[in-house]
């Protein structure tokens, strides 16, 4: 089956770069499956799980807390601050993160709308992390 290059980069290093058949991205406005030859797009990612398919099977599930993806017909580049394999997510971590985010959101109650929105996005991403940890 045709493949495209999937690149996963964090600010500190190149995490992954290899040809895959399909990737499912948690785009800001809904899950998005990418096959080779996809129209060029730039998408913002929300917190969620990236599923990679190779050889007709799901080979990897990675959790990202947010980021960006650049899609071209031959390549997908994901810019994310962290990527954790779903299997190594822990529930305690996710719960702690949710608690932190809820606190931050409460503190941002009278901040500017942009700041509240950013805190909200972090909380949603933490909830997605918990959901992913529970599913694994």
């Amino acid at each position: 089956m045709a493949t495209f290059q999937l690149e996963f980069v964090s600010p500190e290093k190149l995490l992954l770069s290899r040809p895959v058949e399909m990737a499912v991205l948690p785009a800001a406005e809904g899950e998005m499956g990418v096959l080779p030859g996809h129209a060029p797009m730039i998408v913002a990612l929300r917190g969620g799980v990236i599923t990679v398919r190779e050889g007709g099977q799901e080979t990897e599930k990675l959790f990202v807390a947010g980021g960006f993806a650049e899609v071209t017909p031959t390549r997908v580049t994901i810019l994310a601050e962290e990527a954790t394999p779903v299997a190594s997510l822990s529930r305690e971590d996710a719960e702690r993160r949710i608690a932190d985010c809820e606190k931050a959101l409460a503190e941002a109650a009278d901040a500017t709308p942009e700041k509240r929105e950013a805190a909200m996005a972090r909380l949603l991403s933490a909830r997605a992390m918990l959901a992913a940890a529970q599913a694994a």
């Binding site: 800001a28 406005e29 998005m32 129209a39 730039i42 960006f68």
Partner: peptide, 28 residues
Amino acid sequence: QEGPQALYEYEPTEEEILASLLPQNLAV
């Protein structure tokens, strides 16, 4: 390498992506 770039589609809008991309770029 890739010659003239095709026009990208954006999701959500350009402004929204830029609004979160710019602080990230500053940090980079």
